[in-house]
Nucleic acid binder design. Structure first.
Lengths: 157, 157
DNA sequence: GCGTGATAGTTGTAAAAGTCCATCAATTTT
DNA sequence: AAAATTGATGGACTTTTACAACTATCACGC
């Protein structure tokens, strides 16, 4: 990528639009993360990593609950689970309580992947933001976004 | 969407990972924005709005410069310009100085769309974040992200 | 118990984005 | 003048994502 100074370029109203910065940050951090996760079954897309962790940390979690937590519809979630299962990362078993429902369980292979991804994700986020945001500001940022995240869930409900 | 409380759900390391919150915020704000922009030629995808504004505000800007600014490769940028041109929003003319290059110019129709989109984008961002982040925190957030954005460009270069 | 409506999950489809690579023309460098 | 670089386009491919249709099951009220 070439050096194109941002000073002097007129970004119009985007200059003062929060959503613009969120969107740019996302695309860059996501691209960077995908490179780190290359070949790891969870690269690309926003929900795969969260889904893997949730299944790892909440044995028996159901696809529909998962869908709401990763903010996707059931069909998209189902396809993620299909690919997880095809790669031997999880198992879907019929629920004893509700014959419509399934329950997701991590496999040893899935747990191993989760451990690996855990390390990568944390490391990547730290490395990425350390280059562009001072540590004290990162703390502030995290606080604001964390509260916003929880409020988002309340509001959406 | 149903009420699924986030309290009590274990998000694993994501709980303290900045990239996670950035990614979630992005997906929500982008989805919300797309709904607002429905049918407007610039919905979906991250670069279209920025590209339109840049062409509007910088007459004669070249596709390759545009590509670097919207953080896409030339091929993807070209396709955005194709669709803009097909919809009569811009014109690409041969550059007088460099016969390889093109120069992009907004059309009246494109300028009208830019004006409309400008209003929507600002309004949407404000409305979206007002629901989940107090105004004073929004100011702080904007400052941090703005600095991060410019540093990102310096670092990437 | 039975019907209505909601819920769980799958499948199909369609649209679109992003990336990679090859190609071609024009320009700059040495 | 040859080589390397840059600007732009085109094709192919992978993935994501949303939307709607469909089956099966459950829950509630009467």
């Amino acid at each position: 990528m070439k050096a194109v100074p941002t000073h002097g370029i007129d970004l119009d109203v985007l200059e003062n639009t929060l959503s613009f910065y969120i969107r740019v940050m996302d695309s860059q951090v996501s691209r960077n993360l995908d490179q780190r996760l290359d070949r790891l079954e969870v690269a690309r897309g926003k929900g795969k990593i969260t889904a893997l962790f949730l299944i790892d940390g909440n044995p028996g979690i159901r696809p529909s609950v998962l869908a709401e937590l990763i903010l996707k519809d059931r069909s998209a979630t189902g396809r993620i689970l299909d690919s997880f299962e095809a790669h031997g990362l999880i198992e879907r078993r019929d629920s004893a309580k509700d014959n419509r429902a399934l329950e997701c369980f991590i496999t040893p292979k899935g747990a191993a992947l989760a451990a690996k991804v855990r390390a990568i994700v944390v490391d990547q986020s730290t490395a990425f933001f350390d280059r562009i945001i001072p540590r004290d500001e990162q703390t502030v940022l995290m606080g604001i976004l964390k509260r916003a995240y929880h409020r988002l869930r309340e509001v959406e409900a």
